[in-house]
Design a protein around this nucleic acid. Structure first.
Length: 469
RNA sequence: GGCGACGUAGCCAAGUGGCAAGGCAGGGGCCUGCAAAGCCUUGAUUCCCGGGUUCGAAUCCCGGCGUCGCCUCCA
């Protein structure tokens, strides 16, 4: 498998440190707000990566952290008069609900920042001992960027080229160098009850240290893949590298996987534009997942409700592919006249399975991988319409099996057929009776009635089927 | 000012040196008791524009135009 590495800016062969185990750390949600569909895209793409590696028999250990302490959270907690845990658990819950709706497989661990303060302190102490970090006048502890020569190697930022006059942060004058960043922030009154009173000082952790502490704790150093959104390249990941590598003299991670942004109607999602969308705004989460699959993770995805609708229609056509196979399988279930699986069906199955895998191996090209599923569907239907008798039980089983393999990576729940309510089932029986008596007026009435209940009736050569509209 | 990305049919989107995948939408025909689904058929003589390299470029190089991201809030 080949994958693009932000660190080297090229597509590289993926070689894990301890195969078949692959350690992945993905920067997770800051639980002070609802995750929007841009955040969710990143988690979904990490899910595609993880599922792809598992498809190729790797044993993935995925860590997604929960950032449950930061400036915004502290502010919100103190304003709303709740406890930190009470506040963050509400948003944690929403995060888990969101990823569940998108059928994102659970990570191996979801460590919380507040539960790994000790591991953070260990790194900070080491950096202080080595003289790479210092305690400033304000009692905060900073990382001295000038002490780490490789600073900027991930983001390719040259500190001497900073735009003149931009963002000279007035409240950070205690730093020796404006580029230095906080490892430990000294307590201030605005923090209220949120602080840790430790030997390194009373205060709370800086933004980046949590990830260094948790990825090291769960995956060791170095580990295989570090993932996140492109906006985290600088400063977050750059600073993580600085802390971890300066403290331990070892590389932090071998591969850096960054997912590009999702924009809405060509514009960045922002509160001022009032265009922030969450999973609650998405009527069909699986269609959103397909939409994510249809754009390469390194390209921007322009979300519109029109394209969501397109994805939903596309999903319906895949659904009819699967249903047709299931209908055929059921129809011939007890047919004894089985011969060997049709050669043409086998050949297209093999061809597209091979292409599907090659696309994934090529820097996780999910848009191309998905296109082969559609091509398989097209060639299948084309063959079926010309050779209806050639497609029977074993052909159906053969293709269902391939789709099920594809769906291990795609995660579109292609083989989950929702059950039909009993009221609808009863109407279907009544319609069948009317049809047998050639009472088409009655049959059509029943069909309309079912339609009003939100279901579509379809007559096929293998019987009548019913699906949700 | 520095660094970087992108611009492919009505829309979305692959392809990065050998005559332009796939999805959605649309047109025409077939199948069907009627539908639905499906089949067949139709669509970029061309990949933002202008040069160049090459037997050959959407793909490489140079120059424009346009959109966007990052340069310590951010998935």
């Amino acid at each position: 498998m080949r994958i693009y590495n932000t660190l080297t800016e090229r597509i590289e062969n993926f070689e894990p440190i301890n195969p078949p185990v692959v350690g992945i750390y993905a920067c997770g949600p800051t639980v002070y707000d609802y995750p929007h569909i841009g955040n969710l895209r990143t988690f979904c793409c990490v899910d595609f990566l993880r599922r792809t590696l598992e498809y190729f028999s790797y044993n993935v250990k995925l860590v997604i952290n929960i950032t449950d302490i930061d400036d915004k959270i502290i502010k919100a907690v103190n304003e709303t008069n709740t406890s930190l845990r009470e506040y963050t658990s509400k948003y944690e819950k929403y995060f888990f609900e969101s990823i569940d709706k998108l059928n994102i497989k659970p990570a191996s661990f979801y460590p919380r920042a507040t539960e790994h303060i000790n591991q953070m302190v260990e790194i900070i102490k080491l950096l202080l001992e080595k003289g790479i970090a210092y305690k400033a006048e304000d009692n905060s502890i900073y990382f001295s960027v000038s002490k780490f020569e490789e600073y900027g190697k991930l983001s390719k930022i040259d500190r001497s080229n900073l735009r003149k006059g931009v963002r000279v942060d007035i409240d950070q004058y205690d730093k020796e160098n404006p580029a230095d960043f906080a490892l430990w922030k000294a307590y201030s009154k605005e923090d209220g009850q949120i602080f840790w009173d430790l030997d390194i000082g009373k205060g709370r952790p800086g933004w980046h240290i949590e990830c260094s502490a948790m990825n090291r704790h769960y995956l060791g150093q170095p580990f295989d893949i570090h993932a996140g959104g492109v906006d985290l390249i600088f400063p977050h990941h750059e600073n993580e590298i600085a802390q971890s590598e300066a403290a331990y003299g070892k590389k932090l991670a071998n591969y850096w996987f960054h997912v590009n942004h999702l924009i809405v109607d060509g514009q960045k999602m922002s509160k001022s534009l009032n265009n922030i969308l969450t999973i609650k705004d998405i009527p069909n989460p699986m269609a959103l997942r397909l939409l994510y699959l249809q754009t390469h993770y390194r390209n921007k995805l322009n979300f519109t409700f029109d394209s969501l609708k397109s994805a939903e229609n596309a999903l319906n056509s895949l659904d009819s592919f699967v249903r047709t196979l299931i209908d055929i399988k059921t129809y011939y279930e007890f047919d004894d006249n089985k011969s060997d699986t049709n050669e043409y069906i086998r050949s297209i199955g093999q061809k597209y399975k091979y292409s599907f895998e090659e696309a994934l191996k090529d820097d996780l090209n999910t848009p191309r991988a998905v296109s082969y599923l559609f091509e398989l569907s097209n060639e299948f239907f084309s063959f079926l319409s010309k050779n209806p008798k050639e497609v029977r039980y074993s052909e159906a089983v053969y293709l269902i099996d391939i789709i099920s393999e594809f769906d291990k990576v795609l995660g579109l729940k292609l083989l989950d057929i929702p059950t039909i309510p009993t009221e609808v089932q009863e109407l279907l029986i009544a319609r069948k009776k009317a049809k047998a008596e050639k009472d088409y007026i009655q049959a059509d009435n029943i069909r309309n009635k079912i339609r009003e209940m939100g279901y579509i009736v379809e007559d096929t050569p293998w019987g009548t089927r019913c699906r949700k509209a």
